[in-house]
C-alpha cells in the first residue's frame, strides 16, 4: 500500500490572467493581472467529499479547471496522485482520464446531441476498453438503472429528455469508468426542488456505496451540508475557511462564512443577496485582507496585513485576523 491516500493536492496554486493595461490598448500603465486563484491549498483524499462554496466570481470554476488539467497554474503545483496534472503522460494520463469524471453544470451541453443515450453512456467504456462489445448494452442498462432511469431510454436522444433525466444520464456516464473522483460544478442547480432532492440523494448514495470521492462546487450551503463532509469557502480567489462542514456551518470562524450563512436562511436555496457591498474587482486588490471592505469585524490592522489560511482550531483553517471562534490566527 504505497499508494498515497491523497488524490488531489493543490500547493499554493495561483492562476492569474493578464487583462491588459489600464486605460486600454495603447495605454502605457503597468500590465494588470487578475488573480482568479491566489495561493490556494487544498487536498482531496480517497473517499472524501469536499464542497467548494463562494459567490460567483470567487474562482470556483477556475479551481476546477486547474484540477482537471484544463488550465495550468501560473504558480504553485497541482498534483494528482503526487504527479503534476498538466504533465501527466502515457499510462498516468490514461489513469487520470479514467479515474476523474466530471459532471457539468450544463449537463445537456455536455452530452453530444447527435449520440444516443446508449452511445453516450458507453463512450467511457469504449474509450477505456472496459467491456466487451457483447456486454455493452447490459452494462449501460445497469448504469441507467443505477441512476434511476429505465433501460429502454438507451435508444433515445437527450433532446427527448427532461432536465432531471439529462442530469441522471450525465451521472451514469460519469460513473461508467468506475472513477475514483467525481467532480461536479453546480450539478443540481436550476432544477425544481424535488428533482434536486432526488439527485442529491442519488449522489450521496453513490458516494457512500462506491466510496468515490466527491468534489462538489455549489453556491448552496444546504447542498454542501447534505453532500459533503468537508467544506472550503472561497472569496476572491482564496480559500478563506475550511473544515468539517458541520463545524464550519454551525460555528463559522470567518466573517465571510457567517455572512454567507446569514444570507442563506433556508437550505436548498441558493444564496440570493449574499451581503452588503459589492464584491471588489479581483484586479489590483488593495493590500490587507481582501474582505476588509465588506467585513463588519474589520479593524485597522485588517487593511495592513493580509491574513493567511492557517490552522486556527482542530481540523479547521481560516484566514482572518479576528476570527469569530477560537484563538486569533495571529496574536
Amino acid at each position: 500500500m504505497s499508494m498515497p491516500s491523497e488524490l488531489f493536492r493543490l500547493l499554493d496554486v495561483e492562476k492569474a490572467y493578464d487583462v491588459g493595461r489600464k486605460g486600454g490598448l495603447f495605454a502605457s500603465g503597468p500590465r494588470r493581472r487578475l488573480a482568479a486563484l491566489d495561493g490556494v491549498r487544498l487536498s482531496l483524499k480517497a473517499g472524501e467529499s469536499v464542497a467548494i462554496v463562494g459567490e460567483s466570481g470567487s474562482g470556483k470554476t477556475t479551481l476546477l479547471r486547474v484540477l482537471l488539467g484544463l488550465t495550468s497554474p501560473s504558480d504553485g503545483r497541482a498534483l494528482y496522485r503526487e504527479k503534476d496534472i498538466t504533465l501527466l503522460q502515457g499510462e498516468d494520463r490514461d489513469r487520470f482520464c479514467r479515474e476523474v469524471a466530471m459532471i457539468y453544470q450544463d449537463a445537456r451541453g455536455s452530452l453530444n446531441p447527435r449520440m444516443s443515450i446508449l452511445d453516450l453512456v458507453a463512450e467511457p467504456l469504449d474509450h477505456h476498453g472496459l467491456c466487451k462489445p457483447s456486454e455493452r448494452r447490459d452494462r449501460v442498462a445497469a448504469l441507467l438503472s443505477r441512476v434511476g432511469l429505465p433501460p429502454e431510454m438507451m435508444e433515445r436522444y437527450t433532446s427527448a429528455l427532461s432536465g432531471g433525466q439529462v442530469r441522471r444520464v450525465a451521472i451514469a456516464r460519469a460513473l461508467a469508468s468506475s472513477p475514483a473522483v467525481l467532480v461536479a460544478d453546480e450539478a443540481v442547480s436550476g432544477l425544481d426542488v424535488s428533482t434536486q432532492a432526488q439527485l442529491l440523494k442519488l449522489l450521496r448514495d453513490l458516494q457512500r456505496e462506491m466510496g468515490v470521492s466527491l468534489l462538489f462546487i455549489t453556491h448552496d450551503l444546504g447542498v454542501a451540508a447534505y453532500l459533503c463532509e468537508r467544506i472550503a469557502v472561497m472569496y476572491l480567489g482564496r480559500i478563506v475557511e475550511t473544515g468539517l462542514t458541520k463545524d464550519v456551518l454551525s460555528a463559522p470562524a470567518h466573517p465571510y462564512t457567517r455572512a454567507l450563512l446569514n444570507a442563506a436562511p433556508k437550505f436548498f436555496e441558493p444564496i440570493a443577496e449574499p451581503l452588503g457591498g459589492e464584491i471588489p474587482s479581483p484586479i489590483d486588490l488593495p493590500p490587507g485582507c481582501r474582505f476588509a471592505g465588506r467585513c463588519p469585524e474589520a479593524r485597522d490592522d485588517c487593511r495592513a496585513s493580509d491574513p493567511e489560511l492557517v490552522a486556527g482550531a482542530p481540523n479547521r483553517e481560516f484566514a482572518c485576523l479576528h476570527p469569530l471562534i477560537g484563538e486569533p490566527a495571529f496574536a
Partner: peptide, 23 residues
C-alpha cells in the same frame, strides 16, 4: 461542453473531430 468532456475522457483530437464535431 461535450467537446471538452470528450477531451477530459482522453479522447484524441481526430476522434473528437470525427465523432463529435463532424456529425
Amino acid at each position: 461542453p461535450f467537446v471538452e468532456a470528450a477531451r477530459l475522457m482522453g479522447v484524441g483530437t481526430l476522434a473528437i473531430v470525427w465523432r463529435h464535431i463532424i456529425p
